[in-house]
Each structure stands twice: as structure tokens, then as C-alpha cells.
Amino acid sequence: MRLTTFLTLVKFSSKKEIERIALLTFFDLKIKSKETFTLSEMGFTLQELGFARPNASRLKDNLLKSKDFVRVSGTTDTFKLHLRVVERLEREFPEISSKSEEVISDDTILPEGLYKGTRGYLENLAKQINASYENRIYDGCAILMRRMFEILLVLTYRHLGREHEIQDADGYKNLSTIINYTKSNRVVTFQKETEEVLDDFRQIGNFSAHKIQYNCKKGDIDKIRLPFRAAVEELLYQSGIKK
């Protein structure tokens, strides 16, 4: 079942915020076998669906108070549905099955609406990122995601007339240096949740490219998928590519 079909089925728009989160978590559990979510992930998901992004502190308090959710042991902001709730939703929506062979339309990295009409080479790169993820070529996906992030970061500095700040005698400085400079000098701004994982985009790409015994897994990509999408969108606007 597609996410859009599910949202219509459960009358998602009429639900309260905590109910929406329960339904999205249930969908991910049944369709993607993903049991847990972080506050940041859920905030991005709700925002992408066109709803207001909840305040993280308020959301955390509401989840802790709710009997429908359980905080994952050893974490501060990772939650899952209580088994009782899963069983109730399974009875209410028996048509939701992880055995469905239908392709899930939202199971990608960058939605077409984000990159379409930007620049040809960016569109091609975005399509390669999506294709590698959808075809389970996760090392390739990680490397391409790193490349996309680095390109957009450079284009943003260029648009701001500050490209020289990330260059040295040999050309562009390494991505780690550029990220640290960006975060400390606030040349380019990101939402807090995105800024916290900027170096993860670089690191996972480097691991896939250079670590001999490392193989990137789907879970590695999924951890950074939503913040990566947010970073790409923010950079497309700050670089002047999208208006």
C-alpha cells in the first residue's frame, strides 16, 4: 500500500498530532519493517506531508506522557509504538501488510519536485541517488549523496561571493574543513537538526569510498535520509538555484 492511500484510508488530516505520529509509525513498521523513529525524523516527515513541524521539546514531552509510545532504552529521543497499540491498529487496518509487493512511492531519497527544473547535472545526480537507493546499491548511494552535498555547498558559497573562503592553493579545501568553517562562521545556515548531522553525509560517503571492509547498509542511509533531503532543499534556495 502506498503512503498516500494509507493517509486517505485513516483520515489522517482529521487526526490529532499524537495520533498522526502513531499512524505513521505503524505504517513504517508494517511496510518498511522500521520499528522506531527519532524526534527529528518525525518532524521532517510531518513537514514533508504539509503539516506544521512540531516543537521538539513539546513533542518529546507529549510522547513521554502518552501510553501509546515507549522510549527506546538507552536513548533520549528515539521512540516506538507500544505493542498494545500495534495490535489495535492491526485489527483496525488488516489491509496494511509488509508482504505487499507494490512499490512504495515515498521510498526514495530526493522527491522529483525538489530537483526538477534546477540544473541538468543536479537533476541527473539526484536521479542517480534515487536509483542507487531503490536498487539497493547503498555504497554508491552514499558516495553520490556526499557528492551532491559538496557540490551544493560550493555553489552556495559561489552565489554568496565567498567562494575564495573555501579555496586554497590547490583548489577547494576538503569537505570536512568546509563543513567546520560553515558551522563556525554561519556563512550558510541550516536548521539545527540538519546542522547536527552535516558531517554524517561526508563520513558515510567517505566510508563507502575508502574503507576496504565497510559496506553501507539501508539502515545507514535511512538514518540520514530526511536530514539530507532537508539540507539539499536549504542549499538549493541559499545557492539561488531555487527561488
Score class of each variant (00 low, 15 high):
I18Y: 10
E19N: 11
R20D: 10
R20S: 07
R20P: 07
R20G: 03
I21F: 12
I21R: 12
A22W: 05
L23H: 14
L23S: 06
L24R: 12
L24H: 13
L24P: 10
T25W: 10
T25M: 13
T25G: 11
F26R: 02
F27K: 04
F27T: 05
D28Q: 14
D28R: 15
L29D: 01
K30P: 03
K30E: 15
I31R: 15
K32V: 04
K32T: 07
S33V: 00
E35C: 01
E35H: 06
T36F: 12
T36V: 09
T38I: 00
S40L: 05
S40T: 10
S40G: 03
E41W: 08
M42T: 04
M42Q: 10
F44N: 06
T45A: 12
Q47V: 01
Q47F: 00
L49M: 10
A52V: 11
A52R: 05
A52Y: 14
P54R: 08
N55I: 13
N55K: 15
A56H: 11
A56F: 13
A56L: 10
S57K: 13
S57M: 09
S57A: 08
L59F: 10
K60V: 02
D61P: 01
D61A: 14
N62P: 03
L63W: 13
L63V: 04
L63P: 03
L64Q: 14
K65P: 01
K65Q: 11
K67D: 07
D68I: 02
F69R: 02
F69H: 03
V70M: 05
V72Y: 08
V72P: 02
G74P: 06
G74Q: 05
G74W: 09
T76R: 12
D77V: 05
T78M: 03
T78A: 03
T78D: 00
K80L: 06
K80A: 02
L81M: 04
L81N: 02
H82Y: 14
H82S: 09
R84F: 15
V85M: 04
V85K: 05
V86I: 15
R88H: 12
L89K: 05
E92R: 11
E92G: 01
E92C: 06
I96C: 10
I96K: 09
S97W: 00
S98P: 10
S98V: 09
S98A: 13
K99Y: 15
K99H: 12
V103K: 14
S105G: 06
S105D: 08
